[in-house]
């Protein structure tokens, strides 16, 4: 398929004393929205970590745009296959400092750095009505999570890997993050979201379940 952005081919992984993934085959097309469910400790997060090379598979390969990810510079891969952690992590400094953090890394130096106007517009778009100079550590968990998502989105990734992004959020913040994910998906970004909740996206989506180290696709 020409529009395949991410593909797992017989990928396997084993934690020393944790879950195991066996013979994972998964195709993610451009603009796909894939919801990943399954029991705790079944390896859902590991699946996402493998795609961003935070872990290396013990067997099989993972392709990004048809190229094995082991042949892509890890820094370059990660700005294209963005990973959103379960617990939003911000650095010391303001909201603006956090949004500009990626541009201090060598791989992003040639990217266009968002100016104050861009930052304000993007914050507004995500309904984050906060002063960019506000201390990021003073934000609520929900605001921090949206800030983290925006920080990755500014790098225009092709795939967004979201590891239970709403698990620590209150219902209102959860809805905002879910809506935001759907809007991003409608703009063409493929999304793989691990979710424990009863979330049903309003955009077309596929649902896969990770159980006993294998995945099954429930609905297309």
């Amino acid at each position: 398929m020409t529009n395949m952005v991410l593909e797992f081919k017989r990928a396997a992984f084993k934690w020393p004393d944790g879950p195991e993934l066996k013979n994972i085959n998964l195709k993610v097309g451009k603009g796909d929205f894939i919801l990943i469910t399954g029991p705790s400790g079944s390896g859902k997060s590991t699946l996402l970590r493998l795609a961003s090379r935070l872990e290396e598979p013990s067997a099989g390969i993972i392709l990004f745009n048809g190229i094995p990810i082991t042949e892509i510079n890890p820094e370059m891969l990660r700005r294209k296959v963005a990973f959103i952690q379960q617990t939003p992590t911000v650095t010391d400094g303001s909201v603006k400092d956090n949004l500009l953090l990626p541009y201090s890394f060598a791989v992003n130096r040639k990217s266009q750095v968002p100016d104050d106007k861009d930052i304000r517009e993007n914050l507004k778009k995500l309904r984050l009505d906060i002063n960019p100079d506000k201390d990021a550590s003073s934000l609520s968990v929900g605001q921090r999570q949206r800030l983290c998502i925006l920080r990755s989105l500014l790098l225009k990734p092709a795939v967004l890997l979201m590891d239970e992004p709403t698990s620590a959020l209150d219902p209102e913040s959860r809805l905002l993050v879910e809506k935001m994910s759907e809007e991003v998906n409608l703009e063409g970004t493929a999304i793989l979201m691990v979710s424990h909740s009863e979330y049903r996206p309003s955009v077309p989506y596929r649902k896969i379940t990770v159980k006993d180290g294998r995945i099954t696709e429930e609905r297309q």
Binding site: A82, P102, S104, V107
Partner: peptide, 15 residues
């Protein structure tokens, strides 16, 4: 979590 957050934003291990 902090180190991996930076890696995920394109930081090299040294960064």
């Amino acid at each position: 979590a902090l180190v991996e957050m930076k890696l995920c934003l394109g930081a090299s291990p040294a960064e």
